[in-house]
Structure formats: C-alpha cells, structure tokens
Design a protein around this nucleic acid. Structure first.
Lengths: 224, 224
DNA sequence: ACAATAGTGTCTTTAAGACATTATTCA
DNA sequence: TGAATAATGTCTTAAAGACACTATTGT
C-alpha cells in the first residue's frame, strides 16, 4: 500500500510565443527514462530544500534545464493521478508563460502547437489546457501583447490577436478599444518602414508595467 | 536533506453558498494536531490508492468528513511551500464548490466570509483567492445561480448577483441580458407569493444542465 | 381596494461594426 | 509619384442604462 508521502510532486511549464508559424511552444527532448528521447514540456521535481513554492521550482527548472530566465509565470492548474507518470502516483503543478520570441534560446526546441502531439506523460493535455486558457484570455485582455516583441505597433498587435483568436476583428474598432481601455501605452516614438520594410511606419507601444490588462468586453469576429 | 517524496500532498475545498447573511463558507473545526480545535477549510491527504485524482480526493474528503455529496468541484489553484503545514513541505490542490444552502448539512459550520479569519494553515489566503475568483466570475457568468436554491425566480437571482457583486445592476437590463444569453431556462411554472410571501409571484428558472454559463459581457454598476 | 412584488416597454446613450478617407513612409 | 501600410473619421447598428408603466398575487 502506498502512503501519501510516496506521491511524486513536480512542476511543468508551458512556454508560449508567437512567430511567423503561429503559436509555438518550447519543448525539450527528455534525456532520461521515463520517456527517454521523447518530447516533453520542460519540468522537474519540486525540491523542498531549494524551492520555496511550486512557482520557484518552475523558475529553477527553466533556468537550469533550458536557459530561460526572468519570465512571468502564472499557475495553470494541477494534474494528478496514478498513471500520468510511470514512476508512480504524481501531482504536477503546471504553469504557463507568455513570452516574446527573443526570450527563446537559440538552440531551443520551438514547435508550432498545431504540430505538437505525442508528448511525454500527459503533456499533450496540459498543452491543450494552456492553449485553451490563452485563447479565452486573449478575447478579453492584452495577453497577445506578451507574445510579441516589445515595443510593438498597433498592426503588429492586431496580427497577434488575429493569429491567436483565429479571426479578424474590425481594425478600427480594435484600435479604439485597445487604446480606450489603456491596455497599452504609447512609447512616443515611431518605427520607420512598416512591418516588412514597406509603407508607412507605425507608432510603437508597450504593455504598461509589462502587465497584461483585462478588458470588460470581448472581441467578436468581424463579418469581413 | 529532504527528498521530493517527503512532500505532503493534500486537497482543500472552499464550499461557498449564499444565505441571508451573505456569502458563506463551510468550515470544520480540526479534531487533531496541527491546529487542533482551530477552524479550517475541509481538506485532507490525497490517498494514492483510493483517489484517482486530486478532485476525487476532494470529493472523498467532503463525503467522509462533512457529509457533503454530489457537488460540482472546480480546481482553484495549488498552494505550496515549506511553512504552510507544520508537518513539513506541502502541496495542496485547492478546489471550489458553489452550492445552494440546502446542500449544507444541518450541523455544518457555515460562516459568513466577512467574519472569517484565523483559519488553520494558509486557509485564510485560500479562501480569499476563492472569493476573489467567485466575484470575478460572477461578473460574466451565471455563477451566482449556483449559490441559491433551484428553481429560482429572476428577482432571487438578481439578489444573488447584487449580494456577490456588491452592486445593483439595472433590473431591466439584468433581465434582458440573462435571458437573452440563455444563461437560465424557464421551468414553465410560477411560484406563488413572491419572496417573503407578499406580492406577485414569479416565474421560476433553473440552470440548464446545472451548468454555469459564461457571458460575453460584464455587469457594470448602475447609477441608481 | 390596496400594498407589494414581478415583469414590460421605450427612450436615451454608449460603444461596436463597417467602411470610406486621409496620412506617412519607402522605392 | 505611386505602392504599401498606418491612422482617422463618420455612419450605422446593437445593446446597455434609465425609468416609467403595466401585471399579478395576497391580505
């Protein structure tokens, strides 16, 4: 009979970013059993004498295993059960991080989420929950701004929303709403040369306090 | 040096309901150390050989310790650290349940949340997070309907929203929105005698599928 | 009949969708 | 100068707030 203290406690992190290939997740290839050589979310054991909290454990794992530092983590949810880890009954506290592509290390295994399947453990499910959470949150917050380089132009931000929501809000309404609600703050400077180096340049913005703001309302698909 | 498997894994449940005294939480008085005789949220160890998941553990604890059955649980978040439980480093997966008063056992320790303080462990904090979550969710969902007896009349539901949001939306707009969005379904029957046995009776409604629905929009305070 | 509560109708106001128009930059 | 993109303006439409009004029930 297994005792409570035989339960394995771990953390996993879903690091999401947005590239030309759409929404991507940072994965690792497992070096050891179980699931050796299989792709997985970055994660590891909680070390009681090193980690004050599960979030600390997640930050430590990111720094040690994949060289990602100083990211804002949010707790996603916990996953538990006897079968999710072959080593035994486990509880994993999953976290989510929204980062711009520049935070991803050069040698990082960044994969478009639509191509991800067959991850180790129950990481396919964790990823699905994370993506679902991001999509929901994007409809009523500035979350997509956290996935792109800062500062950014309004058309760039619009593109991020469109990519994540899978729809195109009316550009004019989009501007009005995002600016009215104070979700982003102008830097005062402009970027020459538009997105692809063509056309008019755009004013740039940043997230105030690097923080994602929530709105009162939800973006709906435009008819166009 | 402590090993990962020395971590204690538990569940805690915040059972919320709405009475004449406002939002209330169901507590227990601890029978054993630590925190003997101190009030706490219902909770207990995850038993790997009995509980398939943390949620199962929470349901088992509710059934065994306080005689609450068949409630819908939602995961709140996990709390972890070396100091939250004097027995050692612990991870607790906290859950939240929204129930009508009738689900609370006769001998249950039901306390208005505004009077709650000095709970065992970090349960004050867990309760605060749960209440915050309920308040947020109430602004864009039918969550308050889960806290009152079903079926209910529209004025009763309106009262639930007002109590939880701490504001009074315009009653007319409230009706329009709640009905338009299909958040509640009419039973076809009416209740005689109004709320306090006076005045006109009201049509009654239930949550479709007993499920809380989310809206696209947010209730704002009316000027009145 | 009257008091009390439930429910409806409609005017005003706000804000979103649609889309034409103007502005700026680079080749 | 023209192509490409950024930004603004304005008309229409949908929906929320305000609030007067009607409806139903119990005493």
């Amino acid at each position: 009979m297994s005792r409570n203290r035989d339960i394995i406690t771990t953390v996993d992190v879903v690091i999401l970013t947005l590239t030309q290939d759409g929404l991507c997740v940072l994965l690792t290839e497992r070096e050891n059993a179980p699931f050796q050589c299989v792709r997985a979310l970055p994660g590891g054991f909680i070390r009681p004498d090193e980690d004050k909290t599960a979030e600390d454990a997640a930050l430590r794992v990111l720094a040690q295993k994949i060289g990602v530092h100083d990211v804002h983590l949010e707790q996603l949810m916990s996953f538990s059960g006897p079968d999710r880890d072959p080593r035994g009954y486990s509880v994993s506290v999953a976290h989510i991080a929204l980062v711009p592509p520049s935070v991803i290390p050069e040698d990082g295994l960044l994969v478009p989420v639509r191509n991800v399947h067959g991850l180790a453990f129950d990481h396919d499910e964790i990823l699905a929950v994370a993506v679902e959470r991001l999509r929901r949150k994007s409809a009523y917050s500035s979350a997509p701004a956290a996935l792109i380089e800062s500062p950014f132009t309004l058309p760039e931000l619009y593109g991020a929303y469109s990519a994540i929501l899978g729809m195109t809000p009316d550009p004019s309404s989009f501007r009005r709403k995002v600016l009215a609600v104070g979700a982003i703050t102008p830097t005062g400077t402009s970027r020459p040369g538009g997105g692809q180096g063509k056309g008019r340049g755009g004013k740039t913005y940043v997230l105030p306090n690097e923080e994602v703001r929530t709105f009162d309302i939800t973006f709906k698909p435009s008819v166009l």
